[in-house]
Simulated scan of single mutants.
Amino acid sequence: MTAKVLQIIRRAKLPLSKAELAEETGVSLSAISVHVERLLEEKLIEVSKIGVSSGGRKPRQYALNKNIGLILSIELGTSFVHIALTNFNCEILYLTTSDIDITDGPDRVLTRIHELVDQMLLENKVDKVSIKGIGIGIPGPVDFSMGIPISPTIMPGWDKYPIREFWSKYFDCPCYVDNDVNTMALGEHAKGLQFEVSNLIYVKVGSGIGSGIIYDGVLYRGSTGSAGDIGHFDIGSDVVCWCGNKGCLEASAGGKAIVSKGKERALSHRSEYLLQILNSRGKLTIDDIGTGVLQLDSTSVALVRESGTSIGRVIASIVNFANPDLVVIGGRVAEFGDIFLAAIRQSVYQRSLPLATRNLIINKSVLGNMAGLIGGAFMTIDQIIIQSTDNEADIILK
């Protein structure tokens, strides 16, 4: 029950009194007092303010002690890594970014990340002991209970690699590993939306396409951790996907597909803007397409609109099936302005049933490119609390 009380205090928008906690949990005021005093003793919560009296003593109101420790949150992409230290309110205190190549394999990549973490701690004079948990989001399927990647096609050499054990060599704290889109969904739900929406689908559109699902306020991972893998929905095209199948959404509408199409259209002289970049640099990037959208290059605009339309068709099927309150669009391509979002919305509303879209909202991510780091921290703190028990007073934080 102590852990439950902590979760309620942690997720509340405003500080809560003992009476409010008793009402929320359905237990007596005296029982709540025992749990609150224990949390105060462990310094997990603090008196935030004194409330207004209703006739007796003014009630104390309690909030999470966000400075009880730090969380190391890592977001690993195919070509980059973002690393952050957050407090227990998931506020980012320190942040660093570096280029990496995920195909270099886990030993080399994780060793490089560890070097970056050490450098961050040294530069900011942070003691390793203050880190109470590590959360990592990776761009591939994960067995969450084991903390290992499972057959991640774009991560050669990572299959079943013991990521937790790697970090246990350097830090005396728990480590949790999840798919990167799941951590983004958690961050958006908890900190971007402040738990105001119970059913949402977070769609990430970057080099690939994936989604995280919040159902009835809880992240849904599926039986083996692969829930939300919408990038391999068949949209009926002849394009061969890296997975070996034809017609996958990701192969036609993901960031890599957009760049590939951009190169083809540049070489066929349908965009002087893209052709000029291709001739000068020898390649195009997704950021070049984004800049083209901002400069109203007609080919770049068309590429992004086509991607949004295809993604919207798949989201429409999901909306008809799952009936979410909200669809959140995140990832690099989502930052290309309203053209992309408008194409998704139009496609969803055209193809979804009226009842499913009656109250549906489709919005860009509130947290943007920080969703994964914030969500990784939230996931880690959540797991630390969930795995604590009332029988061990110091298990929540070592």
Score class of each variant (00 low, 15 high):
residue 243 C to Y: 08
residue 285 T to H: 11
residue 127 D to A: 09
residue 69 G to P: 05
residue 353 L to N: 05
residue 306 E to M: 00
residue 268 S to K: 12
residue 136 I to F: 08
residue 143 D to V: 01
residue 274 L to S: 07
residue 128 K to F: 01
residue 134 I to F: 08
residue 97 T to E: 13
residue 209 I to N: 01
residue 9 I to L: 15
residue 38 R to S: 09
residue 150 I to V: 15
residue 180 D to W: 01
residue 72 L to A: 15
residue 309 T to Q: 14
residue 352 S to F: 02
residue 123 E to V: 10
residue 61 Q to A: 00
residue 96 T to P: 00
residue 17 S to Q: 02
residue 248 C to S: 05
residue 287 D to L: 04
residue 117 V to P: 02
residue 191 K to A: 05
residue 327 V to F: 10
residue 345 R to T: 00
residue 366 V to M: 12
residue 195 F to D: 01
residue 378 F to A: 14
residue 296 L to S: 15
residue 255 G to M: 02
residue 113 I to P: 09
residue 335 E to C: 07
residue 159 D to W: 00
residue 166 F to N: 07
residue 180 D to L: 03
residue 376 G to F: 05
residue 125 K to H: 14
residue 258 I to F: 04
residue 260 S to H: 09
residue 66 K to R: 13
residue 356 A to K: 08
residue 149 P to A: 07
residue 318 I to E: 15
residue 304 V to G: 03
residue 130 S to E: 09
residue 250 E to V: 03
residue 344 I to A: 11
residue 81 V to F: 12
residue 84 A to E: 04
residue 171 F to V: 11
residue 82 H to V: 01
residue 173 C to K: 06
residue 293 V to T: 13
residue 152 P to S: 12
residue 16 L to C: 13
residue 73 S to G: 03
residue 129 V to M: 07
residue 389 T to V: 06
residue 254 G to V: 11
residue 396 I to S: 08
residue 219 L to G: 07
residue 285 T to G: 13
residue 237 S to F: 08
residue 351 R to S: 15
residue 340 F to Y: 15
residue 379 M to A: 02
residue 126 V to P: 14
residue 166 F to L: 11
residue 317 S to R: 08
residue 301 V to L: 14
residue 67 N to P: 07
residue 268 S to V: 00
residue 302 A to F: 07
residue 313 R to W: 04
residue 6 L to W: 11
residue 145 S to H: 09
residue 200 L to T: 00
residue 81 V to R: 09
residue 164 R to H: 03
residue 207 S to L: 07
residue 12 A to V: 01
residue 149 P to M: 01
residue 83 I to C: 03
residue 149 P to C: 05
residue 103 T to Y: 00
residue 305 R to Y: 02
residue 303 L to H: 09
residue 258 I to V: 13
residue 157 G to M: 13
residue 288 D to G: 01
residue 7 Q to T: 09
residue 358 R to Q: 15
residue 234 D to W: 08
residue 243 C to F: 03
residue 88 F to N: 09
residue 50 I to H: 06
residue 14 L to M: 15
residue 220 Y to R: 14
residue 55 G to Y: 14
residue 173 C to T: 15
residue 105 G to I: 04
residue 357 T to G: 04
residue 117 V to A: 08
residue 47 V to G: 10
residue 214 I to E: 02
residue 206 G to P: 04
residue 381 I to Q: 06
